[in-house]
Nucleic acid binder design. Structure first.
Lengths: 247, 247
DNA sequence: ACTTATTTGTTCGTATGTATG
DNA sequence: TCATACATACGAACAAATAAG
């Protein structure tokens, strides 16, 4: 006996899970929606796509993980900011899980950040204005004073490097660099890596970076960036040697 | 009247959606699972986390999007490969959506790939062995013969650059570079960007790259890489100028 | 302060599709 | 062919958050 043959509207397929996420993405594209714009309600999407609410919700969960949509409870679903939050989550988990050598992940993160600044030395120098240099100097002063007071200065440090990378006007590099920083900050503590001991060396390197930038000396800039990351690389290498961490 | 105060087992919280994904991630970490390892069934996770099936499924969908888990229908849920597939999906969508200037996204992708090779010239040259150089030469020959036959050679091109980046032994850079390539291949056709016209120029640049690498000439290598990406940058700039695309 | 409507969050029950043996 | 285990999908109901009157 032919069982439950749908009479008229012959649907090709019951709309697989992937098709649903694709459908929602297509809706956003077709309607030229922008980050922050409101999407139809879940019920409307059910009707529109011809599937159950559970399936719609699962698809939304997928898109939410990619920051393609953003859900606000009791409010609605919006187009997401399209950030690299998924990259941060993925890399963070990889860092926490990493089988053989957790420190390799950290070393790679640092290497990428260094590359963004060292490999783009000429472009960064060319793009930095007098006001930028002044801001960078201020940030270094903040670091120095906080260091003297025995405080951390990671916030100013982060701002410093963000400013360098922002000068490139490459949003992808900016976000990738920020993501590497974010992941490092989350993973490093788990491996008992401490970096605020070579504070003086770090701050001096920052000063040399700004000096080289002000002088327009590309090679000196690149060298200073390399020296800046040296202590971090050293700590990671030391920790990798000594081994024992396993929380 | 106090309504529905749970009597005895005072649960701190009813386990929010985010806590569920966190719980599953924690399970993987606690049990030292590796990519490919089998996770408990959905039912078991329900019982273990004290929540319903739907919630577990939504959490799994989130983790699946990040490639932290991988679901095989009728088979089970496994620890994922922790690839950067989420980055590819996110960037691709960003490229397709990009509000003002879709070409800016492409230009940024290319800039990152170029940076990986140009900014790491010394490291790449130092790491390339004689066998690597031979393989690179073979790939160029493939490109040339396919070009003469009027065929595309993107596959050999991709292998060529993958080989360069692999020499760095930095898995993060390798995957980021591959991700940029993947996104470009998906997004570029939508914007009617064609790059297989300056084929001769491209292939010549590849030869100069290998020659410089064989000679150990860092500057020449970096210059050749720059020249290699020049036609791509030019096409994107042209398309950006002329504007009209909007499919 | 209270109510109501809207929308997402969560749960349960049931049926279906898929792979293994 | 049958049975089992698992993921997939659906629908209805209720809970919780938010906004507006």
């Amino acid at each position: 006996v032919a069982r439950t043959e749908v009479p008229s509207t012959r649907r090709e397929r019951p709309a697989r899970s992937q098709d649903v996420t694709e459908g929602i993405k297509q809706y956003i594209l077709d309607n030229r929606l922008r980050p922050g714009d409101l999407l139809p309600t879940e019920s409307e999407l059910c009707a529109s796509l011809g599937i159950s609410r559970s399936s719609v919700r699962e698809a939304i969960k997928t898109l939410d993980a990619l920051d393609i949509v953003e859900v606000r409870h009791g409010h609605g679903t919006y187009v997401g900011r399209l950030s690299l939050s998924a990259l941060v989550e993925g890399l963070t988990f990889r860092g926490l899980l990493s089988p053989d050598d957790e420190f390799a992940v950290l070393a790679e993160l640092v290497e990428v950040r260094e590359l963004f600044e060292r490999g783009m030395a000429d472009r960064i120098i060319g793009a930095l204005g007098a006001d930028d240099l002044a801001t960078l100097d201020e940030l270094i002063d903040q670091m120095a004073s906080r260091s003297d007071a025995g405080l951390e200065f990671s916030a100013a440090d982060q701002r410093f490097h963000a400013l360098l990378v922002e000068a490139l006007h490459n949003d992808l590099i900016r976000q990738l660099s920020a993501a590497c920083w974010d992941v490092y900050v989350i993973v490093a503590p788990h491996l008992e890596i401490v970096t605020h001991e070579d504070e003086k060396e770090t701050i001096d390197a920052h000063r040399r970076i700004v000096t080289a930038a002000a002088a327009g000396d590309v090679d000196a800039f690149a060298a200073a960036v390399g020296e800046h990351y040296a202590p971090v690389r050293r700590r990671i290498a030391e920790a990798r040697q000594s081994g024992a961490h396993r929380r």
